[in-house]
Amino acid sequence: MAKPLAASKKVMKNYLSELLTEELPELERKKIKIASKTDDIVEDNRLEALLQNVNAELDIAPHEVSTQKRIAHQDSIEEKAAQQSQGEVALSTQKSSGDFIAKIPKSYRQGDFQTLFFNVAGLTIAVPLIELGGIHKIDKTTSLMGKPDWFKGVMLYRDEKINVVDTALWVMPEKCDETLKNSLNYQYIIMLNDSRWGLMAENLVDTVVLQQDEVKWLDSTSKRPWLAGLVKNKMCALLDVDALIALLNEGSGINQFD
């Protein structure tokens, strides 16, 4: 029993290392590129303006006129630069909109927020408490034919029908061999917000108040929309619950964007 657990923990460590060593997101790189381009344009225009001002001062005697002109000229240059930079941004945004899904700002992205940590196959997953729909003890699930492997089935809870997700199979299908599947001991269902979707969990670890800087936020990735960020000290994934619900509603697996 100890061996598969140790093995799965090792697998998880590698998995999370991969996530944490992720390259700088392309959007951020684009933003930096755009910013430097804009700076260059503004810089060039300022230089041009200064040169023109020097000429103007030499040619025109009255200082008042020259100052007024200078101000007017400076204004038009700034406007021009702003227009140019706006054009650049608009162009880039249009270009990048096809590749990236913008995430809706979350209420927990300001100040401290509480999270629940739970375990699945040695992997710790965090979910913001504000987006937690409830926790149920696992009961009989009725499997439906023709559904993906990660769709465990439907569980009845009072009058509600809960769509149960085999979390390990959804989060890391490529790591789920028979040994790992057999070692899973699911006990709880973590409900996602007010949806009908619930994630299977082996253990509930803790609830922790996190500060913004304790999380490496992943705001602009379309590759893993379900991932809000990574909790640095726990080396674990923080779920973007709404994005996850949307993916589950579509019947999409985790590798949809690969």
Binding site: T142, M145, G146, K147, P148, V154, L156
Partner: peptide, 28 residues
Amino acid sequence: IDDAPNVGNDESAQFIQGVSNRDGELLI
């Protein structure tokens, strides 16, 4: 009668017309 979750492209997923809670048991 509730709709079954609309996930899965498998042919057999189309056989399901709905699901219903019958005395605490799910009827497909």
